[in-house]
Amino acid sequence: MKKIIVFGSTGLLGKPLTKALINAGFEVSVMVRNEALARKYFPDAIIIKGDLKNEADVERAMKGQEGVFMSLSVLQTEKESEWHAEQQGLETIVRIAKQQGIKRIGYLSSLVHLYQGINDFDWWVFRLKQQAVKTIKESGIPYTIFYPSTFMESIFYQSKQWKMIALGGKSEYPLYYVAADDYAQQVANSFKVLHGESKEYVAQGPEAFTQDEAAKLFIKHYKKEKLFTMWAPMFMMKMMGAFSRKFDYGYHIVTALNKYPEKFEAANTWQELGKPTITLKEFAENIG
């Protein structure tokens, strides 16, 4: 396995992933709409201009590739009825991968999406993620699916609002926060050690915290400015979600994060792909 193409390379999680693959010695291609941004991020990658909505672009980008990794997501502002990269886009990639004889498909899922169906929880975004996994597994192509816990980056890039770390409801279970760089290295290692088999990996960090514990620890060690926590009751988030897709997304994802009974499941991942080393303290000290 030498040639890998990444879809979703310029996103928050796609960027460290793509860099890890390049640093691991793979010939990495990325299909992007913004070529200038991709060249800035990945000077050593092959940049292919294209749109995931255009099947001809995807065919051209995947020609001659051996492996594919999909770092796709549903935007907080998207409607269920709209086109989604992680649904229609993913289906296009998988279909063309079968036609072109791709040797391995990699996919970023999530651990918390397994909350779907627990306590009668039902959310179209999690149904979409379930279908994505099903599509990949039924393709007949060897696959690697990653189910990461909450990323440390979410504290800084999503929960941080001005000088506040926004929290909602009560976190009932600790989460094994994982740094994107550690996860990215595990993905790169998976393309080195796997051959014809299909594997699923849980990606979790070395420590577990409830969301309020994580916020307080981040604030303690983040030195670039003084931060505070801001708490919002879930009923308020639900009410605001009736008027805003972004708040509706926030209500559902926070509900799942608060209630999903996460436990440590990454022992096999650590053994086969390497143990994460970045602590939340170190992340807070170096971010930004």
Rank of each mutant, 00 (worst) to 15 (best):
K137H: 12
I96G: 00
E225P: 00
G101N: 03
N34Q: 08
T269E: 08
K238H: 03
T10F: 14
E59L: 03
K160E: 11
A284L: 04
T277L: 00
A97P: 02
I47C: 11
I22P: 01
G101L: 00
T210W: 14
W83N: 06
Y147L: 09
M234P: 01
S109H: 05
T150D: 12
Q186N: 04
A188H: 08
K226H: 09
E91V: 09
N54I: 10
V58A: 13
I5S: 09
F247G: 01
G117W: 05
L90Y: 05
V74W: 04
K224I: 04
K137D: 12
E80L: 15
T92I: 07
I155K: 01
E91N: 12
Q271R: 10
K79S: 14
G241F: 05
E213V: 08
F26V: 01
H195Q: 14
A180I: 09
A36T: 13
L227D: 04
L273R: 01
Y176N: 15
A208W: 06
P16E: 08
H221R: 09
E285F: 00
F42Q: 14
M62D: 15
K15C: 10
Y251I: 11
W231S: 14
K40Y: 15
Y201G: 09
F235K: 03
M62E: 14
F42V: 13
V187L: 13
L128R: 05
P206R: 11
T229Q: 05
K15L: 10
A208F: 07
D51H: 03
R33W: 04
F156Q: 04
T150M: 14
E82W: 06
L17H: 09
Q130T: 13
F156N: 03
H252M: 15
V30D: 00
F156S: 07
N34L: 10
F151D: 00
T10Q: 14
A232V: 12
I96F: 00
V58D: 06
Y143S: 01
T279F: 00
M239Q: 03
G274C: 05
I155D: 06
P261S: 02
Y41M: 15
A256N: 14
K224R: 07
S9K: 05
P261A: 05
Y260E: 08
E91M: 13
V30C: 10
I46M: 06
M230K: 12
A61D: 12
M237K: 01
T279G: 08
V187D: 14
F126H: 11
A266S: 15
A256R: 11
A284R: 01
K79P: 09
R104S: 09
T269P: 07
Q186C: 12
S171K: 02
A266C: 07
Y176V: 11
Q100W: 13
V254Q: 06
Y41C: 12
W270N: 07
D182A: 02
F243R: 02
S190T: 07
G196Y: 10
T92H: 01
P142F: 13
S110R: 00
V74C: 00
K263N: 12
I278E: 12
R60Q: 06
I155M: 08
S149H: 09
Y41H: 15
F243E: 00
E138T: 08
S244W: 02
R245M: 14
G241Q: 11
L13G: 06
Y177S: 03
V58M: 10
Q211F: 13
I155S: 07
Q116W: 06
K246F: 03
L227H: 07
V94S: 00
L217N: 10
G205W: 01
